[in-house]
Design a protein around this nucleic acid. Structure first.
Lengths: 222, 222
DNA sequence: GTCTATAGTTGGATAGAC
DNA sequence: GTCTATCCAACTATAGAC
């Protein structure tokens, strides 16, 4: 464990803090617990980070980056329906596979909103998610040959809000299936927010989507 | 301050704890801080409550009851559109008027999900909201002469999820107007989940609603 | 019933040996 | 750079005086 460059040591400690906080909650992520998890002594943490809050901010940044990355990793598909369905399914699977991390995200948000030492953490979390989703929505327009009928940012905020709500409810009652159904229902709603783009290569198939959706009316269950 | 029945003293302490926690966050609601806020000495709190967690559980119950009550207090209106619009507007106003309490609700939820001592708090919060909304949805059916085309519970869960998501985003970025717009957009979506009931007294007017909504497509902004 | 005093823990941060 | 020892603050909880 000895003789390690500071930069490397920092990532080691951030990973240890992430493990502890995901497993036992943000309150359990004390400097002592993180040091023990990383197998280093107490002083090392204070040598690598100014104080506990700087360590927690680094952990929050790591989680946000991870969330943003998971938004980018979306399966490709030819039509809008299949694309949204697979995107939503994959995204939900990523959530329920990391309960501790998901919960930690909300703990970090509320902590940031209370304590000024945690400064911009909450804003960075949401700004990161909103921005990544804007890019994602633009990519879909290209890939599926559609145009969104509401502004990117507005739609991005809606997606984050619905996912947050479904994730919170799932954290509380643990019902995987209800959550998945809610996400799929939301995907159907999203279809109604798209219209075939003028320069679409397969405008006919896409037109079919928008017509169906207007008739069937999207059910947005949870 | 002296000579007060225990039951009365308990509500006094719960109110003090609520004030402190709303103002400074759940971590700041220590036994000491609550005692100081209530103007009693440290020992009194431990005399009225078994331990700190019992006090916090009582605070959580008070908040949940308050939330449930705010769901019941909904302005009356003749048609579905006006009813949903006023309900949503009033509800949102209640949220942004109590930022601290709203944030405390999420702090209590995450705390409950981590610490077994806080036991059923999170479940009680959501079960309470879901149940109250089920009753609300049934009342609307009577009042507006409609039938919901999805099960009560499912729709109730959707409402809680969307409100949670919008409230969280508002807590982070503080944009009252975007939040209000999101709520109103969601109200328009809810209209598409209703159909005129067979025994409606003014079936013609209600039919108009469902036809409009199917054509205009609900925009659910945030 | 109420208050003071204090026990017993925990955790952030630092000083100083190695 | 790393570890041990230690300080100091804040908190829960209780014991015992009044």
């Amino acid at each position: 464990m000895s003789r390690m460059p500071v930069a490397e040591r920092r990532v080691q400690l951030i990973e240890a803090a992430l493990r502890v906080a995901c497993r036992d909650g943000i309150d359990a992520a004390t400097v002592r617990a993180v040091a023990a998890e990383a197998g280093v002594s107490l002083g090392v943490v204070h040598y690598c980070f100014l104080d506990k809050d700087e360590l927690l901010r680094a952990v929050a940044a790591a989680i946000t980056e991870q969330n943003v990355a998971s938004i980018r990793d979306i399966a490709e598909a030819t039509d809008l329906h299949g694309l949204l369905e697979s995107a939503v399914t994959n995204f939900w699977a990523g959530i329920i596979a990391n309960r501790g991390e998901q919960l930690l995200g909300y703990e970090l948000t509320t902590t940031s909103l209370r304590h000024s030492e945690m400064g911009h953490v909450a804003i960075d979390q949401y700004e990161g998610a909103w921005s990544a989703l804007e890019v994602f929505l633009q990519d879909i327009e290209q890939g599926a040959g559609i145009r969104w009928i509401v502004p990117y940012r507005q739609l991005a905020r809606t997606i984050v809000a619905v996912v947050d709500g479904l994730a919170l409810a799932w954290l509380v009652d643990g019902d995987d299936e209800v959550g998945r159904a809610g996400m799929l229902g939301f995907a159907r709603f999203l279809e109604t927010q798209a219209t075939p783009s003028a320069d679409s290569e397969n405008a006919d198939g896409e037109l079919d989507v928008i017509v169906r959706s207007a008739v069937e009316r999207a059910t947005l269950p949870a």
